[in-house]
Amino acid sequence: MADSDRTVVVLGATGQQGGAVAAALRADGWAVRAVVRDPSGQRAQALSADGVETVRGDLGDPDSLRAAFSDAHGVFSVQPNSGQAGSGVSDEDEFRFGTTVAEIARSRGVAHLVYSSTVAAGPTPTGVAHLDVKSRIEDHVRNLDITSTVIRPATFMEILTLPGMGLDQGRLSFLTHPDRAMQFIAVRDIGRIAAAVFGSPDRYAGRTVEIAGDALSGEALAERLTRASGRPITYSRLPTTLLERDELLGRTAALVDNGRLVGHADLDALRAEFPFLLSFDRWLAGPGAGLLDEAFRSAGTGVALR
C-alpha cells in the first residue's frame, strides 16, 4: 500500500490502546515502530511476530525517543495513567512524558502527532489531578508547531469485565446511574480511529475528537450482559459508603453526576464517519466475548477504573 514505506511510532504498544493502534495501522498497511522498554519481553516479541518493528526506549529517556522518532511520519502518544494504582507515575511525570514526546516529535520533523487524552479533558479543571494533567498536555501540544490531532476516548468497554466489578457474583457495580446513559468505547475502535486519523491528516489536523461507540445506562448494561452471557446480571451503582470513604472515587463519581465523565460525543455522526464502531452488543459478541467469560471465573476485590 501507499503507506507501507511510511512509519508511525506507537507508544504504549504493549498496552491496550497502543496495542490496538499498532494492530489497526498494520492492517491499513502502515509500517509501525513500537517503543518498548524490553524488546525481548513476551508482549514485545508478539508485536515483532505481527510485523511491528520494536525499538528499545523509555519515556524518561529523551535520547531514546529521539532515536525512535528518526524518519517517522507519525507518532501516536499515550502515557501511563498517573491515576492508575500501581503505575508508579505521578501527575507531573505524566505531564513531562506527554510534553516531551510532543516536543521531540516536532524537533524530529514528524508530520503528524496523535495524542490520546480523556473524555473529561477541557478548558475547565475537573479538580481531579490525573484527569486535568491530560488537559495540560493537550494545551501544550496545540501550542507547538506540529500538525496534531487529539482524541478523547470515552470509558473503555473492557473496564466493565475487569475483576472487582462483580460479574463473578452475578452483578455489575460501576459509576453510571441505573437510569442515566454513559458513553463507552471498545479499545479496538480507538486503534481503528487513530489509524483513520493518520490516513486522512488534512481532515483531522488541528481537531479534537471525542470518541465513543455506545451510550448505556446501568440497567441497559445489565440487560445486555444478561443476554450475552445467558445468566442473570443485576446492576447497582457503587455504594455511597464506598464513594464517601474513597476520596478519589467519590470525586470521580461526582464528575459522572455533573456530566463531565459521561461523554457527549455525537454517536450518529461518529458512526457515519467510522462505520466500524462497535456497539456494546457487538463488542460482547466479538472482542469482549473472551473477557466476559473470564470475568465470570475471576473473583476480585476493589474497583478498577480507567
Rank of each mutant, 00 (worst) to 15 (best):
Q79Y: 11
F69Q: 05
V256M: 03
A181E: 15
E138H: 10
Y204T: 15
L65P: 02
L59H: 03
R66W: 13
L65E: 06
V150M: 05
D50K: 03
G286V: 14
L255E: 02
A120D: 02
D145T: 15
A24L: 00
N143C: 14
A23P: 08
I185W: 00
R66M: 15
T208L: 12
G164H: 03
E223Y: 08
A205E: 04
N81R: 05
G41Q: 07
P62V: 15
T234A: 12
G29D: 05
G15E: 12
H264Y: 08
G259H: 03
Q17M: 13
G302W: 05
S217C: 13
M1R: 09
A205N: 02
G12T: 13
R37W: 04
L113M: 00
P275V: 12
E223H: 12
G166I: 03
R271A: 15
V78A: 00
A22V: 00
T100N: 05
G213T: 06
Q45D: 12
G263P: 04
H140W: 03
L255G: 04
P39W: 00
G60I: 06
W283H: 05
A85D: 08
G230F: 06
M165N: 13
S135N: 09
V8T: 11
G288W: 09
V141H: 00
A23Y: 10
E273Q: 15
A196N: 14
R152G: 02
A295M: 09
A222G: 12
T149F: 07
G12A: 07
A46Q: 13
T7C: 08
L216E: 02
T54Q: 07
L249E: 04
A49E: 08
